[in-house]
Design a protein around this nucleic acid. Sequence first.
DNA 1: GCAAAAGTGTTACGCGTACACCCATGG
DNA 2: CCATGGGTGTACGCGTAACACTTTTGC
Lengths: 222, 222
Amino acid sequence: MPYCYEYPHPAVTTDVAVFTLRQQQLQLLLVRRGEDPYRGMWALPGGFLEIDEDLESCAKRELKEETGVSDLYIEQLFTFGRPDRDPRERIISVTYFALVPSNKLEIRAGSDAADAAWHSLNTLPELAFDHAEIIQQAQERLAAKTLYSTIAFQLLPPTFTLSELQSVYEILRNETLDKRNFRKWILSLNLLTETGEKRMSGNHRPAKIYQATNPDHVEIIR
Amino acid sequence: MPYCYEYPHPAVTTDVAVFTLRQQQLQLLLVRRGEDPYRGMWALPGGFLEIDEDLESCAKRELKEETGVSDLYIEQLFTFGRPDRDPRERIISVTYFALVPSNKLEIRAGSDAADAAWHSLNTLPELAFDHAEIIQQAQERLAAKTLYSTIAFQLLPPTFTLSELQSVYEILRNETLDKRNFRKWILSLNLLTETGEKRMSGNHRPAKIYQATNPDHVEIIR
DNA sequence: GCAAAAGTGTTACGCGTACACCCATGG
DNA sequence: CCATGGGTGTACGCGTAACACTTTTGC
């Protein structure tokens, strides 16, 4: 036990709630735990902070190691630290909230986790630790930010049609939207650029393809 | 050094940015550091997490110990963890954002801090660690929540006049508001109850005294 | 009666909402 | 020519914003 301190120190981990859209549903990335405690149960991807590593770097590294997912929108969510939240020792978990676009949601299970898979939010398995609570808060954050920011764009590939964008909003807000009103509103924000291309997909009129003018920036609107 | 671990552990602290209204200004509570590093410089009240203590309890305890301030509105702000943010060792700081009403802002310096004092936000001294950045984010949180919640009530005593409440909003939003529109809006939210009392303060018509119907609950509005 | 803050209504404008039909393509 | 999703304009109502005078008190 070579690392010694004058006062007790908690361990620090990061955990990430990654959402994507698959099969017209909002889905969440979970890993099956390969080690105790909670071996065999599903949990958020995450792990221990290295001593010289930034918090956000840790979240991204663990995510990539365990699931192969990288290059995504990520923001800090909340820090959980109930003294009894982990049976091993006192652990503070700095949690993150992330979104991946549907064009790069291939996952591959990594070494630390026996398995990684997308789960529909309404059929989540039982979760390890306090991860159900973390997911709850992440969902609330996503719902709130959908209303006042352009975070929804982070769930789409770099180019998309207005119908695809509308579909994202409909899934996130869980309601159908009027096509004309949606287009009027989204175009009035001046955040979209026409690529000039059209997408022909099936036996109907082709759709104009748009891209976010500033794809990496989540704007605050309203 | 009796506390030993197999892997290195960072230390965890909490720091709190407490705001109040004094002299018609938004002010922030700082303590002068009595120990190295940054001895003699101003910093946010805060300190090390005890191993069996909840994060929010730690923030409240340190605040009370160092400044005597207790019984306030407090919420988690952000967790700061740049590897080099503290010269002693790796320290993760879970920061909190708090508001105290103007009727209980008496402070007394505690044992850990040589001195505690309120500072105007536009004349802040140089700050220890990355505390300037923390304060920046706390101010942004306050400004944002002013617009969509009833957080402003937390800066007033339990009873107040509508003019006093309007003044809080004017200071927080840094603009003057129309008296009739403000009253119409705030009353339409149905969050206020008339006490039936009136406040006579000077040579003019006395003002009706109101209280928040649900004083401890910060409502999300809009 | 004068100074000083409390209290009170009406109008105008813009934004969000509701709503139905034609267009381009593939088969 | 038919099925499918893409694309377009107008009218109404509500909520926000602008705006000035009367009331009550202390001195």
